[in-house]
Simulated scan of single mutants.
Amino acid sequence: MLSDVTRGGLAALFGEDRLVTLPATAFPPPAADTEGARLLPTVGAPVGTLTLREPDALSGRLPLVRDVVHVTDFEDRDEARQETATWPVIGWLPTAHLAPTPSTADRRRAVARVARGEMSAQTVSDGGRVMEIAALVVSVLALAASAFVSLRQIRLTKHTNTLPVVVDLFREHRGLRLARAREVVFRQLPGWDLSTGMEGLPERERHLIRDLAWFYDNLGALVTHGVVDIEPVSGYLGGSVVSVWERMEPLVRVERAKRAQNNLPDPNRWQEYFENLYHLVKELPPPDARAQSRLWRLPQP
């Protein structure tokens, strides 16, 4: 119901700066008591859902249906065509002009014309059905447009919030410390005795490996819980996730076993998000993650 729509409600959903109004003087007298004529000057309509017509610069009035469309194309009854032609056009969707439903006074005049024999009751009935269908179609289109705008706004807000997180993570991954840690994992770790876990590693290298593991574990937590999307993570550093995990997995297993022997709670929690990130990247390999982007232009390897 239009009577349930308030400016505060629309402003909360779309933002005050996105609401536009029409002056009350833009409506011709026959449409002055329609719901649209009462609400559009005060409540307004959200930009992006529909576009409001600009009143004529000379008359200050809205154009009528007969001024913007050929009513003969959609109504074959002269009486209904004449009634429809006098409705003001308040705006349009991408493929449809919008005109407010006739007011109560208009409907009463139509009934009086039927009583005088100037219009058939069937014409009034057909016109009512047409308007009911048109109103339903417009409502569905407006709802779909509003849902699209709202979802896009939510997505843009999410990207705005997560962008600094992703940038910082990628910067840290490129840093000298983690680059040195990956070098240790690739070149030195396979040759060490891992039977005693982290304790058996040289102290300096142990700290590097620990920081690298916790980096991927923290990244895995963000991806697992939907804070960061898997696509850019896999596309940009998925190869490192896979190769580092496969070299560190024996060390992780030993550490988990030691925690279980010491009766520590949830011993498998150690690097669990890192392991889960590994499986997510295996499900969406880096080439596939990059190819899924609509802006990726390079061919698959």
Rank of each mutant, 00 (worst) to 15 (best):
L2S: 13
R113E: 12
P28G: 06
H173Y: 07
T95K: 09
L98K: 01
V149R: 15
A45F: 14
L189F: 04
A179G: 12
T101V: 14
M198E: 14
M1W: 03
I154W: 00
A260T: 02
L284A: 03
I154F: 08
R206M: 07
L19M: 08
L2A: 12
P202D: 04
R256F: 04
L10T: 03
I133G: 00
R61L: 13
H70V: 08
L189G: 04
A99S: 13
V166L: 15
H173D: 09
W192Q: 15
V223S: 12
L264R: 14
S125W: 11
P29K: 00
F215Y: 15
F27I: 06
F170W: 05
D126I: 11
E132Q: 13
W296V: 07
S240M: 00
P164V: 00
R61S: 12
T101G: 01
V47D: 04
L22F: 11
L277C: 07
R7V: 06
A144I: 05
F215Q: 02
R155E: 15
W270E: 10
L62A: 04
P301I: 02
R113G: 03
F148R: 15
R116S: 14
V111D: 02
Q82M: 10
A110W: 15
Q261K: 11
D33P: 01
L93G: 11
T86C: 05
A145Y: 12
S293N: 13
F74S: 05
H225A: 01
E283R: 14
L219Y: 05
L22H: 12
P100W: 07
R66C: 07
R177E: 13
P55C: 05
H173P: 02
A289Q: 01
G200L: 06
G36H: 01
G220V: 06
R108F: 06
P250K: 08
D126Q: 13
L178E: 04
R180M: 09
R174G: 14
T21R: 13
V124Y: 05
T21K: 06
G197P: 08
Q300E: 10
R210M: 09
Q188T: 10
T224M: 06
T84N: 06
L201F: 07
H207S: 10
S195G: 15
I133N: 03
V233T: 10
S103D: 10
K258C: 00
S243K: 10
Y273R: 15
G48E: 02
G48F: 00
D67C: 03
L277K: 10
Q300T: 09
L13I: 12
V43I: 08
R294I: 10
L136Y: 15
I133M: 08
V223P: 15
T95R: 10
P46A: 03
R107G: 12
L264T: 05
L284I: 04
L93E: 07
L212H: 04
L156D: 13
D33E: 15
L10G: 01
E231F: 05
R129G: 14
D67Q: 04
T34K: 04
S243G: 01
D33R: 07
